[in-house]
Simulated assay, not measured.
Amino acid sequence: MTFSVVARDPATGDLGVAVASCILAVGRAVPRARPGVGVVAVQARSPRGLGGVLLAGLAEGTPPADLVRRAAHAAGDDDRQLAVLSAAGEVAADTGPGTFPVSGHLVGDGACVQGNMLASSEVLPAMLDALGRAAGDLPDRLLAALSAGQDAGGDLRGRQSAALLVVGGRPETEEDDGVRVDLRVDDSGDPVAQLRMLRNLQRAYDDRDYDTLAVFAPEGARDLYAALAASRRGDRAAARGALEAMRERPGWSQWLAAMAGDGRLAAVTRLLD
């Protein structure tokens, strides 16, 4: 009823999992991750708490193959599907014999794709091939795999939700929680496409792409990003117009005054002096 991919970036050590399904809020059920430890996907009829147990086992140093073997052969459970990837890139997966067909998994180098109740047997090979061919960083490659799976038919029942979770290869610290990407689409007619849009929006925030944010950020903040974009271009008139539009809104003048020390807004106000 779900298809997913887990992978490690050998260059950065980042670990990620992406998933799509025709259930509500699949991001709540399938993907789990812990920085510096690993990522897991627990799907089909795997119990919700299994993801935490698998991550705890990884943290204790148990190899993924041993964890998967134990979980897959629990008494009376033949309809589980799971994949486990360690911070070192070791990966193991299992598809129970009672899992709804078309189902299965394919293990690659530091990666694995898995799915059940798929529209065709082409879904998983398409995902693994796309993961290997895709350019960009790990979140982009995971999304490429997810998109390829959807294009090959995806979940037999249709589309509803998707999620993308990427963490660092080192344990979290007080300064860095280790979470690189954590995006979810809980209910959508095209959740994979919507997830890609969210990824692009997050990239714009991370890269301070003010021109993009001036168009796609929430409406109330667009004038702010328009002012920042104009400031970066040295466009005094456009920056003034965007800033004046912000000042006309109730409460925004006080907020702008409070943000006077922010380096980005200082660049705007210098243009207006």
Results as ranks from 00 to 15, higher is better:
residue 61 G to A: 04
residue 263 G to L: 10
residue 271 L to M: 10
residue 206 D to C: 01
residue 195 L to R: 08
residue 218 P to F: 09
residue 104 G to N: 00
residue 228 L to I: 05
residue 140 D to W: 09
residue 97 P to Y: 03
residue 251 G to V: 08
residue 172 E to F: 09
residue 249 R to A: 11
residue 95 T to M: 02
residue 147 S to P: 01
residue 81 Q to C: 03
residue 118 L to T: 07
residue 194 Q to C: 02
residue 223 D to Q: 15
residue 148 A to C: 05
residue 19 V to F: 12
residue 225 Y to W: 09
residue 272 L to N: 12
residue 138 L to A: 10
residue 14 D to L: 11
residue 105 H to R: 11
residue 141 R to F: 09
residue 273 D to K: 14
residue 262 D to P: 02
residue 245 A to F: 04
residue 2 T to K: 12
residue 60 E to K: 15
residue 25 A to F: 10
residue 137 D to F: 08
residue 54 L to S: 06
residue 49 G to H: 14
residue 180 R to D: 01
residue 36 G to N: 07
residue 240 R to F: 02
residue 220 G to V: 06
residue 232 R to D: 11
residue 199 R to H: 14
residue 183 L to R: 08
residue 113 V to I: 03
residue 259 M to L: 15
residue 220 G to W: 05
residue 57 G to H: 06
residue 12 T to M: 10
residue 85 L to F: 01
residue 258 A to D: 13
residue 225 Y to I: 03
residue 249 R to H: 09
residue 165 L to W: 12
residue 271 L to A: 06
residue 67 L to K: 04
residue 59 A to N: 01
residue 213 L to P: 03
residue 209 D to C: 02
residue 149 G to Q: 09
residue 130 A to E: 01
residue 224 L to K: 11
residue 180 R to N: 08
residue 188 S to F: 02
residue 106 L to K: 00
residue 6 V to C: 15
residue 121 S to C: 02
residue 28 R to A: 15
residue 24 L to D: 14
residue 212 T to S: 10
residue 88 A to C: 00
residue 23 I to P: 01
residue 57 G to E: 07
residue 234 G to V: 03
residue 143 L to H: 07
residue 269 T to D: 07
residue 15 L to G: 12
residue 1 M to P: 14
residue 37 V to K: 08
residue 225 Y to A: 04
residue 178 G to F: 05
residue 43 Q to L: 08
residue 256 L to S: 07
residue 10 P to E: 13
residue 89 G to E: 03
residue 58 L to E: 03
residue 211 D to F: 06
residue 175 E to Y: 02
residue 143 L to F: 06
residue 195 L to P: 05
residue 143 L to W: 09
residue 1 M to N: 13
residue 22 C to W: 14
residue 59 A to W: 09
residue 243 L to K: 00
residue 193 A to I: 08
residue 99 T to Q: 00
residue 264 R to Q: 14
residue 240 R to A: 15
residue 175 E to D: 15
residue 30 V to Q: 12
residue 124 L to H: 05
residue 60 E to R: 15
residue 61 G to K: 10
residue 115 G to E: 01
residue 151 D to V: 10
residue 61 G to C: 02
residue 142 L to H: 08
residue 62 T to F: 01
residue 24 L to N: 10
residue 170 R to M: 05
residue 10 P to D: 04
residue 183 L to P: 04
residue 136 G to D: 07
residue 107 V to I: 13
residue 96 G to K: 14
residue 124 L to I: 04
residue 200 N to Q: 15
residue 53 V to W: 11
residue 209 D to H: 06
residue 188 S to R: 14
residue 85 L to D: 05
residue 140 D to G: 15
residue 207 D to H: 10
residue 47 P to Y: 07
residue 217 A to N: 10
residue 150 Q to V: 13
residue 56 A to I: 03
residue 74 A to T: 14
residue 228 L to C: 05
residue 145 A to V: 11
residue 192 V to A: 06
